[in-house]
Structure formats: structure tokens, C-alpha cells
């Protein structure tokens, strides 16, 4: 482990706010959505009956869309750096994927140094972007153009929306496990959920490349 002392700001305030909004929306949308699909009436009652649950689902869908959109527009720099990070795949990333970052017990091997996000997180980033995009392009027509669309298209939207949800829920479940439960990585939980900081030592270990650039910057300033 590295000897660095101090703290690193990993997630800025607005990023954390956006993450919280998205998180809360996602959970409620997921619960109500599963309630509709599998006709679980208890869930609908929590939200005041099936009609109201549907209203909640739709308007939270709006928040779920507008939230990140506003974030992207007001934090274009952060968004661009994030996209740049997750769209850069180097040999180290592929090596990380080969050993799955050492998270899977059976897979042994040296874990190469990583960016601000490791290869797994990069893939999750893309998955989230794609899933959200699909939610938007199927969800809003299901609501606003339900009368105008031909039935086959409306049916397709429902199917895509459901399978998209299945994939997203599984991915987010994995994300939650690694970020909040897994002993190796849960140290980062607080950074997104509370103040945004991680221990420099942790960062130097998990995100060696990124930390190196930060160190470089601060040395230059000093």
C-alpha cells in the first residue's frame, strides 16, 4: 500500500446530488415498475392504488430524465471528463477485465493500475447510459404517444422497457454490492453518498493512474 496521506475529492457536490436523485428515482421506479409488470397489488397500494402508482412512476420518470440532463448541461466539463475516462480503454483495462480486478475469488493474477474508474466501472458507466437512453426513448412514447403509435410499436416499447429494466436492475445490484458491501471496495461508499472524499491511500491503490495525474498537478502548483 502506498504511503500517501490525505484526502482526494472524487465526486463533486453536484455529481453527488445527481447521483442521489438518480438513485432514489431508480429505486422507486424499479419497485413500481415491477409492481405493474408482475401485478403485485401490495406495491400499488403503497403508492395509493394502481392509478396513483402509475402517476408516480411517470413523473419520477421525468425527474429521472431531467435530473441527469440538467447535470450534463450545467456540468459539461465534468461530464466530458467522465466520458473521456470511460471511453478510454488501454491494455491495462483489458488486463483488468481478464482478472476481473481480483474481485472474483477464482481468478488470480496481477491487477494492473487503473484510471479514475476501473474497467468494470467504465463498462457499468456505458451500460447505465445506454439503459437510461432506452428508458427515455421507450418510456415517454408509452405515455405521451400511446394513442398515436401503432400497436406493434407500443408493444415493442413495453418489451424493451421491461428487459431494459431487468438488465439495469441486475447491473445496479452488482454496483451496489461492490460499492457498499464488498470489503475491498466499500471504502468508497462514503465518497459518493456523503462528502465526496476518499482516502488518498485508497485512491492511490485503486485508481493509481488517475491519482498520479492529481499528484502531478498538485506538485506543479506547489
Amino acid at each position: 500500500m502506498s504511503q500517501v496521506k490525505g484526502k482526494v475529492l472524487k465526486h463533486a457536490g453536484q455529481t453527488r446530488l445527481m447521483h442521489w436523485i438518480h438513485l432514489i428515482c431508480f429505486v422507486i421506479l424499479g419497485i413500481t415498475g415491477l409492481g405493474f409488470y408482475f401485478k403485485i397489488i401490495t406495491i400499488d397500494y403503497i403508492f395509493g392504488g394502481i392509478g396513483n402508482a402509475s402517476v408516480v412512476h411517470r413523473w419520477l420518470g421525468v425527474v429521472f430524465t431531467v435530473g441527469p440532463l440538467l447535470y450534463i448541461l450545467t456540468n459539461f466539463g465534468r461530464f466530458s471528463r467522465f466520458i473521456d475516462t470511460i471511453s478510454t480503454f488501454t491494455k491495462d483495462d483489458f488486463k483488468w477485465l481478464k482478472t476481473m480486478g481480483g474481485y472474483i475469488p477464482g481468478l488470480k493474477g496481477e491487477v494492473p493500475p487503473q484510471d479514475k474508474y476501473n474497467a468494470g466501472q467504465k463498462l457499468l458507466g456505458w451500460l447505465v447510459i445506454i439503459c437510461c437512453f432506452l428508458f427515455f426513448v421507450t418510456g415517454f412514447p408509452m405515455w405521451l404517444w400511446r394513442h398515436a403509435m401503432p400497436p406493434q410499436l407500443l408493444g415493442l416499447c413495453y418489451d424493451i422497457h421491461f428487459w431494459d429494466a431487468v438488465i439495469a436492475i441486475l447491473a445496479v445490484a452488482g454496483h451496489f454490492f461492490l460499492a457498499a458491501i464488498h470489503p475491498k471496495s466499500r471504502v468508497e461508499f462514503a465518497s459518493m453518498m456523503t462528502n465526496g472524499y476518499v482516502e488518498a491511500a485508497v485512491s492511490a491503490h485503486h485508481n493509481e493512474k488517475w491519482f498520479a495525474t492529481l499528484q502531478n498537478d498538485s506538485e506543479l502548483k506547489a
Partner: peptide, 17 residues
């Protein structure tokens, strides 16, 4: 030490974003 986030935006980052 407290390491703050970067604020600069490179050409590549902008284009990708």
C-alpha cells in the same frame, strides 16, 4: 494533503463529451 478535482477540459475530453 487535499487533492481537489481537475477543472481543465482538454480538446479530447470536450470532443468526446
Amino acid at each position: 494533503n487535499t487533492f481537489q478535482e481537475k477543472t481543465n477540459l482538454t480538446r479530447r475530453q470536450f470532443l468526446r463529451g
